[in-house]
Write a protein that binds this DNA or RNA. Structure first.
Length: 342
DNA sequence: AAAGCTGCCAACCGCGTGGGG
DNA sequence: ACCCCACGCGGTTGGCAGCTT
């Protein structure tokens, strides 16, 4: 009532985004910050619906997105989180702040699921495959007793805990170097060419230079704090940017420095200085939680990450205290992640 | 060399939810 | 209390690129 319609279906452009459109969108978000998506098409002149703009930003243009190959560590996390949460990609993505839910979903559908199916077929058993996504593994489920099923479930939970513990462990920076190796994931060059791994996309690449220039301007003239806060409240999609502004690495600092190198700017701006992992040790669980999109405070119900961690570590500590590390002994997670327990 | 196949991923679609009027 | 809309999420699809025949 009284609200303008999101998009009036006519004259709405679909399909791949052009560099020019990206630039329009990015430059608009430079000024106003993300959020208020319904205003974006009109204010930018883009013939796209607000939804499409939001999607483009969150899945592609948003700073801090890591593209390219998933590390073993990320793979592990996805597998376990998927087992734990099911196909709730946004929830899973909240634990891999550099990855979008779309990315994770795609990776699951194109790589991991097949991998798991293959492993299953190879006689790896069905442990760990109990979520709704593995409904086709009925051969195993049809005959198992309830007791077996419960044991299996418990094992799976243990495995998930183990993986999460690995992932969250500060002293084991998981795939740290590769995770944040500028050549691998986040870097200014990546921003220059968001389709980092699609080097074939040369027409786009040339134009994205402009986008990086725009972003550079953004860093020198970040959105006003009030706007940032508003947007933070409205849309935590921009978590990297805004949460860092509230945290140790501030946008304001970056902006004040004015002439810092672009790459440095990005690093500080998005809090990726040198040692962030998927859930960086430098990032408190609360902070990382806060970073999540509309990202779940809770898991399936939902549990806050800090709670999860507590749960994990308490369990681990208790097990250790009781000398029950063998609890995990039959579900040990090898360092090279894929195959493991399925 | 060309046609067909397969894999991958960006983007779209439809639905649920929450909030403003 | 109700309606309408924006937003967010998960599922699905279209199209491109690389590979195989």
């Amino acid at each position: 009532m009284g609200r303008p319609p999101c998009c009036d279906k006519e004259g709405i452009k679909k399909g791949p985004w052009t560099p020019e459109e990206d630039i329009s969108l990015v430059s608009y978000i430079q000024e106003h910050g993300p959020g208020n998506w319904r205003a974006v098409p009109t204010n930018t002149g883009l013939h796209r619906c607000s939804k499409s703009c939001r999607l483009r930003w969150t899945n592609y243009l948003r700073p801090g997105i890591k593209r390219g190959n998933f590390t073993d560590h990320e793979e592990k996390m996805i597998i376990h989180l998927q087992a734990l949460l099911g196909n709730r990609w946004a929830a899973i993505a909240s634990y891999l702040p550099q990855r979008t839910d779309n990315d994770i979903k795609n990776y699951w559908n194109t790589h991991l699921r097949k991998k798991l199916i293959k492993l299953q077929a190879a006689g790896g058993g069905t442990e760990g495959l109990h979520s709704k996504d593995q409904g086709n593994s009925n051969s195993s489920s049809q005959a198992i007793s309830r007791g077996q099923w419960e044991r299996r479930l418990q094992t799976d939970i243990h495995m998930a805990r183990q993986a999460l513990r690995d992932a969250l462990s500060p002293e084991k920076p998981p795939a740290l170097s590769s995770d944040l190796n500028p050549a691998d994931g986040f870097s200014i060059s990546n921003l220059k060419n968001p389709t980092l791994d699609q080097s074939s996309n040369s027409t786009y690449a040339s134009s994205t230079e402009n986008i990086s220039r725009l972003l550079k301007g953004w860093m020198k003239n970040p959105p006003k704090k009030s706007a940032r806060l508003t947007n933070l409240a409205n849309n935590q999609t921009d978590y990297q940017h805004y949460s860092s502004s509230e945290g140790t690495t501030s946008v304001a600092n970056t902006a004040n420095s004015g002439n810092v190198e672009l790459s440095d700017t990005f690093e500080s701006l998005f809090g990726f200085e040198s040692s962030n992992s998927d859930l960086s040790p430098s990032m408190s669980p609360e902070a990382s939680l806060f970073q999540g999109e509309s990202k779940p405070d809770l898991i399936s119900g939902q549990l806050p990450l800090s709670f999860l961690e507590k749960w994990l570590f308490d369990e681990g500590a208790a097990a250790a205290a009781l000398g029950k590390d063998h609890l995990f002994s039959d579900t040990v997670i090898p360092d090279h992640g894929n195959a493991i327990f399925f």
